[in-house]
Structure formats: C-alpha cells, structure tokens
C-alpha cells in the first residue's frame, strides 16, 4: 500500500523518521521482524513502526474522525504489539490483521466510554504530501475526502469499520471478517448498507464536489 511507511512531521518540524533507510530489515516479513524485536533487535522496532504505524493511525483516524483520539489508539495498539512480541507464533495469523483488530477494538472501547469527539475537525485528514495533481485538483480531492469523512461518521460503528477496511484500506472480505470476527456474509451486508448510506449522504453535495458535469 502506497501510504504505508510514509512518516513525516508538520511543515517546518524536525523530521522524525522511523522509515527504514533500506537494507535487509526492510525486506523481512512482519513475523520475522516481531521475532527480531522480541530478541532485542532495536532496528526491528523502527521498521515495524514505519510499516504498521501508518496503517494503525490511518484506520483509527477514519473510524474515530479525530486526530488526538486516533493517535492515542494507534500508540496503544503498537504498544500491545511490542508487549505481545515474545509470545507471537509465526504463521498462525498476519501481524497486520492482528493489529487492525486491536485498533478496531480500541475504537469500539472509546465509543463505549464516550471518548469519541462528536465533531469532525476539518484538518482531520492531512493534505497529500507528494506534489502530484495541480492545486485545484488537490483542493477538490481534499473537499471530497472531508465530505467522505463527514459522511463516514454518520454510519453506525460496525458499518463504518467495514467500509473503511474494505474501500479505503482495500482489504479483502475474508480479511475483514477475520479482523471483525464476523462472517464474510456479514461483512458484505455491512459494506453494502454502509455504501448506500454514504451515497445518500453525499448525493446532495455533488455539485459542490465537482460532479455537476458528470
């Protein structure tokens, strides 16, 4: 996934890069890196943070819609990964799947305990870091992303999780079923209902978001 591994600070901030500078560690599987971490290899933590940290933060940000809450959830999920490392059994499950499950459960816990912020900060999702499309296109993409985020937060919690994992994280239905501990059919149902609600929520904003000419 293109987004994984990108770590940067706010403009002007001193860069803290956990991204690997290349080498053998970057080629290792998550299983191998977890084993190396458990054996005291410090570089493994940096590679795992660069590889899995953005995933944990991204999905938490989409589900919670609040930057501070998402940071807390992502940090807690990674902390559980570090603590679980000595007991990890390679090959039984994917580390990323395990991490997604932890993040989702933390998000649910925060909702149960009423910690989730109600409002969606406009800057919840940062602008693209790489220069690509022109300024107008970037602004339009930003507006569409913000509109999607606002619509996502109107969905029931489980529908939102399923839609985020399926259509933004691009995981397969069986993977999502494993993360959410439900059947594949239930995943399909959740995503279908979620997409219908999203479409209805976004329908009134088509002209504003640049869909007026088809």
């Amino acid at each position: 996934m293109a987004r994984a591994g990108i770590i940067s600070g706010p403009p002007g901030a001193r860069g803290v890069t956990a991204a690997p500078s290349g080498g053998e560690d970057a080629e290792l599987s998550d299983d191998a890196l977890v084993a190396l971490f458990a054996n005291g290899d410090e570089r493994a933590a940096r590679v795992l943070t660069a590889r899995l940290g953005p995933k944990a933060y991204s999905v938490a940000l989409r589900v919670l819609g609040n930057r501070a809450e998402a940071e807390d959830a992502a940090q807690e999920a990674m902390l559980r990964l570090w603590r679980m490392a000595p007991d990890w059994r390679p090959g039984e499950a994917q580390v990323s799947t395990w991490l997604y499950r932890v993040v989702m459960n933390l998000c649910l816990d925060r909702k149960r305990h009423g910690k989730r912020a109600g409002a969606v900060p406009l800057d919840a999702v940062p602008d693209p870091a790489d220069p690509g499309p022109g300024a107008a296109e970037r602004m339009q993409d930003g507006a569409r992303t913000d509109a999607l985020q606002a619509a996502l937060l109107t969905l029931p919690e489980r529908q939102r999780q399923a839609v985020v994992l399926r259509h933004i994280e691009e995981l397969s239905n069986p993977e999502i079923a494993g993360i959410m501990e439900i059947s594949v059919e239930a995943v399909e149902s959740l995503t279908a209902r979620g997409k219908r609600t999203l479409a209805a929520a976004l329908a009134g904003r088509q002209a504003e978001l640049g869909y007026d000419n088809g």
């Binding site: 293109a2 990108i6 770590i7 706010p10 803290v16 989409r62 999702v125 930003g142 691009e170």
Partner: peptide, 15 residues
Amino acid sequence: AARCANTVLPAGLAA
C-alpha cells in the same frame, strides 16, 4: 481521494 490523501504518521506519534 481518501486513499491518495497520504495519511502521514505525525512525528510526535512515531517518536
């Protein structure tokens, strides 16, 4: 658009 909006890991969070 959401997928392309590179979700960066804040420097403080990475640290």
